[in-house]
């Protein structure tokens, strides 16, 4: 599943090798960002969450014994961190952001964007994380399942449901955009 080289990098990082950990940051921060973004729907906050999660991971790296599980563990930390941020923030930022953008863009796209946003926000957090991993990183289902700690094959159902629920919500907006 994981090749020997990758495994060695993770093992070294667990044992305190900084260079190995930096290598992990290079390769893994995008998927982590995808997860954080999926949950938070805000780039700045997601970046901060990833940053915090990486620091925390470095400090408590000794908790992971199996290098095999290191990526999944990283994802978990990011999820927790993002969830914390999500809980703490007030609902204001999203709305404000949308108002700002709505001035520059055309009314239609703004509406669609707005609809998309609210549809995404309505989804469960796990679904959002899975969606963003898929759409940002184009990861295959098995990897996503591994990262999010899901059982084999369950992702198909999750993504299916997520897409369906969004589809239902976005139906009018889509219809207006593509007559």
């Amino acid at each position: 599943m994981m090749d020997a080289n990758e495994r060695e990098v993770y093992r070294a990082a667990i044992h305190g090798d900084r260079e190995a950990f930096e290598m992990i940051i290079r390769t893994q921060s995008r998927p982590l960002f995808a997860i954080a973004y999926g949950i938070l729907q805000n780039r700045e906050e997601a970046e901060d969450a990833v940053q915090d999660a990486l620091i925390k991971a470095w400090k408590s790296r000794w908790r992971v014994r199996d290098p095999e599980k290191f990526p999944a563990w990283l994802c978990m930390i990011v999820r927790h961190r993002a969830r914390d941020v999500f809980r703490k923030r007030r609902p204001v930022p999203i709305i404000r952001e949308i108002r700002e953008t709505s001035e520059t863009e055309t009314r239609d796209t703004a509406t669609l964007d707005h609809e998309l946003h609210s549809a995404l926000s309505a989804l469960p957090e796990l679904h959002r994380a899975a969606l963003s991993l898929r759409y940002f990183e184009e990861m295959d289902y098995a990897t996503i399942e591994n990262r999010l700690g899901l059982t084999n094959g369950s992702l198909r159902g999750i993504l299916g449901r997520a897409l369906a629920s969004m589809r239902k919500q976005l139906k009018p907006a889509l219809a207006s955009e593509q007559p």
């Binding site: 950990f21 940051i25 995008r30 940053q51 990486l54 620091i55 969606l131 940002f136």
Partner: peptide, 24 residues
């Protein structure tokens, strides 16, 4: 299609990794 476009817009820029590293 809409989703792909939306996420494409929101993708982190190229300097993202470097920012993460610098922050770390």
């Amino acid at each position: 299609k809409v989703l792909e476009k939306k996420f494409e817009d929101e993708k982190p820029d190229l300097a993202f990794e470097n920012r993460m590293l610098a922050g770390f």
